[in-house]
């Protein structure tokens, strides 16, 4: 088994045993899309046409939020309790460690985002009393765009949490998340078609997400062990 798989597997294991984060994630995965479904029904009247587009738009902030909350447990907790220092002494590069942790937290974050998408559809169907037509673009959206943005959010926040001190992390953590929300909102406003699901929007979101993930990977590779050790509380 590769060290990447070992690290990712452990993060999945730890995330699934963190009851408080799982409960928070599940509440958010149900509450937020259910409320969004009310909005969908209110704006679309009896029509089910815009449901796919709005659900696609809703799943992205949920994906980012899920990436953020699972990530905090993987990176910040290990820094707070000093375990990261022991991991840095293992024969694993920092970039490997970052990649394994990011992938590990992305799995439970992705599963809860999938649940949120299902809840959004179910709630909209119930309120409209009809089954919304599934747009085929939702498939690449859920299989590519959503995972990419979860990895991007988790990767960026994880790299920042490794590099920054505890106080800076408390302040900047939320700024990162809101930064991502504004970025997605901004992208959706400049892409033709607005929040409706379209091939152009999906490609633009995927490309931007992948570029940001590459940037996060670059930043994680630039963080020095000394920087991490010196910011352990």
């Amino acid at each position: 088994m590769s060290t990447f798989t070992v690290i990712a597997g452990r993060e999945i294991h730890l995330a699934l045993r963190n009851r408080s984060i799982i409960i928070t994630a599940l509440i958010f995965a149900v509450w937020f899309p259910a409320l969004s479904a009310v909005g969908i029904v209110a704006t679309s009247g009896a029509s089910t046409d815009p449901v796919s587009g709005v659900v696609a738009a809703v799943t992205l902030p949920i994906a980012i939020f899920m990436g953020y909350i699972f990530c905090a447990d993987a990176f910040l907790r290990e820094k707070r309790d000093g375990t990261i220092e022991t991991l840095l002494c293992a024969p694993v590069s920092l970039r490997h460690l970052w990649a394994g942790k990011t992938a590990g937290v992305a799995i439970p974050a992705y599963l809860t985002t999938l649940l949120a998408a299902v809840v959004a559809f179910a709630a909209a169907s119930t309120m409209l009393n009809a089954f919304p037509t599934l747009d085929l673009l939702l498939i690449p959206h859920m299989l590519i765009v959503v995972p990419v943005w979860i990895l991007t959010a988790a990767g960026f926040v994880g790299a920042a949490q490794l590099a920054l001190g505890m106080r800076e992390n408390q302040i900047l953590g939320f700024l990162f998340i809101f930064g991502f929300f504004f970025l997605i909102g901004g992208l959706q406003s400049v892409i033709p078609g607005g929040s409706a699901i379209s091939a152009t929007a999906e490609v633009a979101l995927a490309v931007t997400g992948i570029a940001l993930l590459g940037l996060a990977r670059f930043i994680a590779g630039k963080v020095s062990k000394e920087r991490i050790v010196m910011t352990i509380p």
């Binding site: 070992v6 452990r10 294991h13 000093g82 375990t83 220092e85 022991t86 293992a90 024969p91």
Partner: peptide
């Protein structure tokens, strides 16, 4: 180090298995 490098939510055997994986 002083913190032992262990994850509290994992069992003793799982903690050792994790480091065994890291060290190949």
């Amino acid at each position: 180090f002083e913190n032992n490098g262990l994850a509290d939510r994992l069992s003793a055997a799982d903690n050792l298995a994790y480091y065994a994986g890291l060290y190949g």
